[in-house]
């Protein structure tokens, strides 16, 4: 058992060390949502009204509405960044070191996903702390509630990142992921506008947003931040996490032969 724990800690430690060495990654991970919060949300708050809808009990400012979506955005970008670092590891050869470990692929994959989720959580917590500076108050209990929701969403997106890493043959192809995965996933979700608002404008776009699993990740985090459980979002995220993790395991085993 000690050996398993040693390996698990080492995989997590390595990801943290790499993240620490690349501090500009943290900076860009925070600047992106802060720009949305401080510029986009401020500019649009009088244009986009948000009605009273669960989990909110009163009218809220647009800035408050988009915070859960921006938390999910941080998780999304971090997960895709991890998929990029897997491609880098494969190109640089260090992936072979992991694959030559005697521990099972499922365990190694779990450790990698866990490490990615920890990094996502750390970045989200720093972002939430910065939100206090612009008067978006989230209770400590809400943050505690949201921690497992962020973790679960990070697992689902991390697994998706590993699946995508298998299809990215070179680092240069990562721009495609930005255009075809990250942006559509983020914009076609409830991260920036409520689904009912989207439905008012476009029925088909509403259904795309509704079936986008990222929407459910956003809603899971949104409800959790206000100490509620969105059961349907939880079930969807649990389901896609299981499906994507299974697919990720299959592609991760395939990395051995890549």
């Amino acid at each position: 058992m000690g050996g398993w724990l040693t390996a698990f800690i080492a995989i997590n430690q390595r990801e943290l060390i790499r993240f620490w060495h690349n501090r500009s990654r943290l900076l860009s991970a925070l600047v992106r949502p802060l720009l949305w919060l401080l510029v986009f949300a401020v500019g649009f708050r009088s244009v986009l009204g948000v009605s009273i809808m669960p989990p909110y009990e009163t009218y809220i400012l647009y800035q408050e509405y988009i915070v859960p979506g921006l938390c999910a955005m941080i998780v999304l970008f971090n997960s895709m960044q991890n998929s990029l670092s897997m491609v880098y590891d494969r190109e640089m050869g260090s992936m072979k070191v992991l694959l030559m470990s005697p521990y099972p692929s499922s365990f190694l994959l779990f450790a990698k996903l866990f490490a990615s989720a920890v990094l996502s959580l750390l970045q989200v917590l720093i972002f939430i702390a910065l939100c206090f500076l612009v008067d978006v108050d989230i209770s400590l209990t809400g943050i505690l509630f949201a921690t497992p929701a962020i973790f679960l969403t990070a697992f689902f997106l991390g697994a998706l990142g590993i699946i995508l890493a298998n299809f990215i043959k070179q680092l240069e192809n990562f721009a495609g992921i930005m255009n075809f995965v990250i942006f559509p996933m983020f914009f076609m979700s409830s991260a920036l506008y409520p689904l009912w608002k989207i439905r008012e404008s476009s029925e088909w776009l509403y259904w795309i947003c509704y079936y986008n699993p990222f929407t459910h990740g956003v809603e899971l985090i949104r409800f959790a931040l206000y100490q509620h459980i969105n059961t349907s979002a939880l079930l969807v995220i649990l389901g896609v996490t299981i499906v994507f993790s299974t697919l990720a395991l299959l592609t991760f085993r395939g990395q051995k032969h890549a």
């Binding site: 000690g2 050996g3 398993w4 040693t6 390996a7 800690i9 080492a10 995989i11 430690q13 390595r14 070191v97 992991l98 030559m100 470990s101 005697p102 521990y103």
Partner: peptide, 11 residues
Amino acid sequence: LTYFGALHGIS
């Protein structure tokens, strides 16, 4: 060195 060792369960 320690990362590789840990991947083989060695402290």
